[in-house]
Design a binder for these strands. Structure first.
Length: 513
RNA sequence: GGCGGCGUGGCCGAGUGGUUUAGGCAGGGGCCUGCAAAGCCCCGUACCCGGGUUCGAUUCCCGGCGCCGCCUCCA
């Protein structure tokens, strides 16, 4: 029976509590995805990994998970970039969405079940905003439609501060005619409305979400002002609405899409710590103001800290996920992220990444030494299957205890490494059955964390293969001097040389670097 | 100004009111190996500072210091 005994920190209550499911056995989770206006940075990588692991673990426990994560493809930053580079917003969004998925693939992050694009949901957003206006909790101004947060009960829940306190801390008051500095835009009117043809947009709205990359391209109603891209018209993006042409505010999309795809009272809403306030607070406020039941549980992951100045100059800047993935195995970053608790800040720099790569190599050693067991374990995506495949019940239980405790991946990982030791030790002692069992468990548990062990035989070029053959020949005749010389040559070329019963084997010093 | 988080051995990082410890990486010793590599065995004795609670605190409470973040549509 698929029981979920996971306890997770809930930002809304500030406590670690059991994840209560709306429908037993099924989990609906919504995680705020990226605004595709630039390449992803390390923080994007972290939240993607954290929630990917949560999703995998829930599945490991036997639950059926519906994972929704959006792509924000209409946003000031996208428009700014489009304007600056003189191209269509859809081109900017399309480019960076593609980059996003490539990075996700490299990290081994599974694709969401649904990937709603904001531009495909504008009609539904307009409907919600209209509903809020109708209820008297939202009001129109010269430049848009705002939510009156004073009227939302419990505003400040996720900020962990009462409304008064937030109001007091609010910074520079904008010139806009907002009733409160905390009120936020549900709808933004397009100011410099340059194109006067028929409304080009017409949201493709509706349910279903046009999941998948690039699906958003044709719904853009880019109203490029004719002629030179002078005023604010170039690259503008707008849709019709009762308040005139405009575009939705950021917070609106996530409310509409999460409720639209997962329904009222869905189980879990997640994202980075910085989304807690104001983004999630404002999503919640809208839902509450609209009389809807929103997420039952809120999860937020901590930040990535990079020893900025010092590091970027001397050792290479890792703030871009793309850069990191160009230099290191995506699995190493996953391991690095999993080593610490998801709510704590993590330090990412060349040293910690290298450290993780070494740890990864140790894990991969299991796949090299016990390929059959590793394959069997990897194929088991649930605890039940892992046990059926011969995994150690006790180790699996220990793993689950750690994971159930607010996703203590660090503790869970410690258990996995302990199993690595046991597998190798048993192997050394000739206890094949015990070794296989431990190895199977390692692969299954690592797999539950999204770490696919690789026995990868790196591609060996002809020259290297020739050197390996020379070493084997030299060793066969006990020509140690010659054998050592060849090894030095191989090492010099970046290979790790290991002599085994079947001869010399080589693998790359640092995986995929 | 308001709020939140963090400060653990060389590094990264779990965890806990006290008997025996996370784990990884690096390092030292040993086994294995022609020599290595990989693997195995053994080793460091840490918990920001000052108070308090307690028989006893790294772990609880208070204060301080330091670092980070949020209060601006930043994961």
């Amino acid at each position: 029976m698929a029981t979920c005994s996971l306890r997770l920190f809930d930002t809304a209550t500030g406590t670690v509590r059991s994840l209560e499911l709306r429908d037993p056995g099924r989990v609906g989770m919504y995680v705020c995805g990226p605004t595709v206006y630039d390449v992803p940075h390390l923080g994007h990588g972290r939240f993607s990994l954290v929630f990917d692991v949560l999703r995998r673990y829930l599945q490991f426990c036997g639950l059926q998970v519906r994972y929704v994560s959006n792509i924000t493809d209409v946003d000031d930053k996208i428009l700014d970039r489009a304007e600056r580079e003189g191209r269509a917003p859809s081109a900017v969004a399309g480019e960076f969405e593609a980059v996003w998925w490539r990075a996700m693939d490299a990290l081994g992050v599974g694709r969401p079940d649904e990937t709603p694009h904001a531009t495909a949901w504008v009609e539904a957003m307009v409907a919600m905003v209209a509903d809020l206006v109708g209820r008297g909790v939202a009001y129109e101004t010269d430049d848009g439609v705002y939510l009156d947060v004073e009227q939302v009960p419990g505003y400040g829940l996720l900020a962990l501060q009462p409304l008064d306190s937030l109001r007091a801390g609010a910074r520079v008051e904008s010139s806009v005619a907002k009733r409160s500095p905390l009120d936020f835009a549900l709808w933004k009117k397009v100011a410099a409305f340059g194109a006067f043809g028929a409304f080009g947009a017409g949201g493709a709205g509706g349910a279903g979400g046009a999941g998948g990359a690039g699906g958003a391209a044709d719904v853009f109603g880019a109203a490029d002002a004719g002629g030179a891209g002078d005023v604010a018209g170039a690259g503008e993006l707008w849709w019709p609405s009762p308040w005139g042409p405009g575009r939705p505010g950021w917070h609106t999309e996530c409310v509409v899409m999460s409720l639209g795809l997962l329904g009222d009272g869905f189980d879990l809403h997640g994202g980075g710590q910085d989304l807690r306030f104001p983004h999630h607070e404002n999503e919640r406020a809208q839902a509450v103001a609209a009389g809807r039941t929103f997420a039952q549980h809120w999860a937020h992951n901590g930040f990535v800290e990079v020893d900025g100045e010092k590091m970027s100059k001397s050792l290479g800047n890792f703030t871009s996920l793309t850069d990191l993935l160009a230099q290191a195995d995506g699995r190493a970053y996953r391991l690095l992220v999993l080593r610490s608790h998801y709510r704590k800040p993590i330090e990412v720099n060349p040293a910690t990444v290298a450290d993780a790569e070494e740890g990864l190599a140790r894990l991969d050693g299991i796949a090299r030494r016990f390929p059959a067991a590793a394959a069997a374990g990897a194929a088991a995506t649930t605890a039940d299957r892992a046990l059926a495949a011969g995994a150690d019940p006790e180790a699996v239980a220990t793993f689950r205890v750690a994971m159930d405790d607010d996703l203590d991946t660090g503790g869970a990982l410690a258990g996995v490494f302990e199993l690595v030791r046991r597998a190798n030790a048993a192997g050394d002692a000739g206890q094949a059955a015990e070794a296989e069992r431990a190895a199977t468990t390692v692969a299954a548990l690592a797999g539950a964390l999204g770490l696919a062990l690789q026995a990868t035989v790196d591609e060996v070029d002809a020259a290297t293969a020739a050197l390996v053959a020379q070493r084997d020949a030299a060793r066969a005749t006990k020509d140690w001097a010659r054998a050592d010389a060849v090894r030095d040559e191989l090492v010099g070329r970046g290979w790790i040389v290991e002599d085994g019963p079947s001869g010399t084997a080589v693998r790359r010093k640092v995986p995929s670097r």
